[in-house]
Amino acid sequence: MIINPNNPTGANYSPAFLEELLELARQHNLIVFADEIYDKILYDGEQHTSIAAMADDLLCVTFNGLSKSYRVAGFRAGWMIISGTKHRAADFIEGLEMLASMRLCANVPAQHAIQTALGGYQSINDLVLPTGRLGKQRDLAVSLLNDIPGVSCVTPRSALYLFPRLDPNIYPIEDDEAFALDLLRQEKVLVVQGTAFNWPQPDHFRIVFLPNVDDLTESIQRIGSYLERLRK
């Protein structure tokens, strides 16, 4: 199972890396599940490769939808694509069809959004430019976070998130849920602790960089004030 582009890290995997994963999948006869919901939210001219395009010799199930790229998360419009060695998977596909039938169908009004979205003008391409709202907010948030002592944040190449690390020598956090709760109560900023993403160490947190420049600046300043008190 891979999430590419990745949530929460913002990585966009290279074809060479995907090939390594596929080699492993072939050795062990694995099914590949690929969550590609952020495949159009790419910065700095990044290109996305669907792993299913590199693996017609394996069963691949690719997931995508309109929520993020077309800003209609509330519509709940998504899809699942079965590709590759489908002939081996007739029984599994029958199971999928059974479950799809049991919920009768997906919400019909939202399905009407799909054809227009995929075929029409791709306004997301403007938002991710360095001058676009997402591009600007990403750059600002990364730079503000990296200015806080003991915080290091890699510039994400895709998606909507930052996953900064807190240096454990400076911030000896043992329970990062308690950290998130304390930050919330003191600074009224809601973040998600890294262990919520099954990250094994309590030394990361995730934020979205969706707020406008003013709110983003304000919220990262508040995170900075909280961390300053934590350092003392």
Binding site: R76, A77, W79, I82, E97, A100, A106
Partner: peptide, 24 residues
């Protein structure tokens, strides 16, 4: 995207990816 051999029948729409992940 270069994903070959996909027919209409190989596509299942859902109430967001979340529902489809659980279903799969």
């Amino acid at each position: 995207k270069g994903i070959d051999g996909v027919t209409i029948d190989d596509i299942i729409l859902g109430n967001g990816v979340s529902e489809l992940i659980v279903m799969a």
